[in-house]
Design a protein around this nucleic acid. Structure first.
Lengths: 153, 153
DNA sequence: GCTTTACTCTACAAAGCATATAGAGTAAAT
DNA sequence: ATTTACTCTATATGCTTTGTAGAGTAAAGC
């Protein structure tokens, strides 16, 4: 399960992506529009900034904005920053491998084999989806029939 | 990330699947062989029993054993029992849908659309893999070259 | 039917993490 | 100088995870 922190981060980024090219957005506005506790959001945005995902401008007319074009920010990258590895087990993480403490023999661990598949599929999806892709999906989903689920053909 | 509880549950089940048809296994033996705190394991096994995944026999010669053949117990089922929904967000869970509190409008939430894909892919894998499948994978992986990763063709 | 074996159940506890909140500080704009 | 707004550190609080303790109960075997 994604933490609220990660969810908030993605919501904020989704908003900023939608307003890319419209100049900086205030923390307050983000907090209001996205329904996120302001002080908590400050921490999150600062963190994202320190990792290069966001940039900020101080003083009047300031605020936060994306540090890179929406097409260059992947959901996988953001989630790893905020929540850590995508892998369901430390022993199948590509970016932060750690042996499972209780495992006596990785070679005979079927759990590991299966979780590796889960990790790979999750990573494939999240690393392969940028903020721009995400907005594109929303647009397509709306134009195809807002109320009902429709299947792309 | 899977909880330790879920990991322990799967380890125990993997062991019991390997020893299916060999009669009951003691909690103590499971705890020893799989390197799991015994008292904690008791709780987990009891829980699995109460949900029909395991059966037990008391007294001398007793112990735990699978309640169904290994081919009929899916990893998805077990993980949901122990850790709850597979979905990364409550709003994309099939088995336990809940609206995200902070979401004003699900229709414009790209996060939701993407996480739905993640959920579906994870559920497909985990619901589609039984304990028997898992053992099969281990066997295949060992026979194909224990040291190196080999690709099935 | 007594003893041993082994699962069953409830309660509790420590630690860690998630989710915030407070408030002083700093940089930029005008 | 003043206002605006981000920056940073510290702290609070509750929940979940991970585990432990101990008395209870059912079955087996003699």
């Amino acid at each position: 399960m994604l933490s609220k922190k990660a969810k908030y981060a993605l919501q904020a980024l989704q908003f900023l992506a939608r307003h890319y090219e419209h100049g900086p957005t205030l923390i307050s506005e983000l907090a209001d529009k996205e329904n996120i506790p302001k002080k908590f959001l400050e921490l999150i945005l600062l963190d994202l900034k320190n990792h290069g995902v966001l940039q900020s401008k101080k003083g009047k007319g300031g605020g936060y904005f994306l540090g890179k074009p929406p097409a260059e920010i992947s959901l996988g990258h953001v989630i790893r920053l905020v929540d850590g590895p995508l892998a369901p087990l430390p022993c199948v993480s590509q970016t932060a491998y750690r042996k499972c403490e209780e495992c006596r023999d990785e070679a005979t661990c079927g759990i590991r084999l299966v979780m590796k598949v889960v990790r790979d599929s999750t990573a494939m999806i999240l690393d392969g989806t940028s903020l721009a892709d995400m907005l594109g999906r929303v647009a397509r989903s709306k134009s195809r029939g807002p109320a009902k689920k429709t299947r792309r053909r």
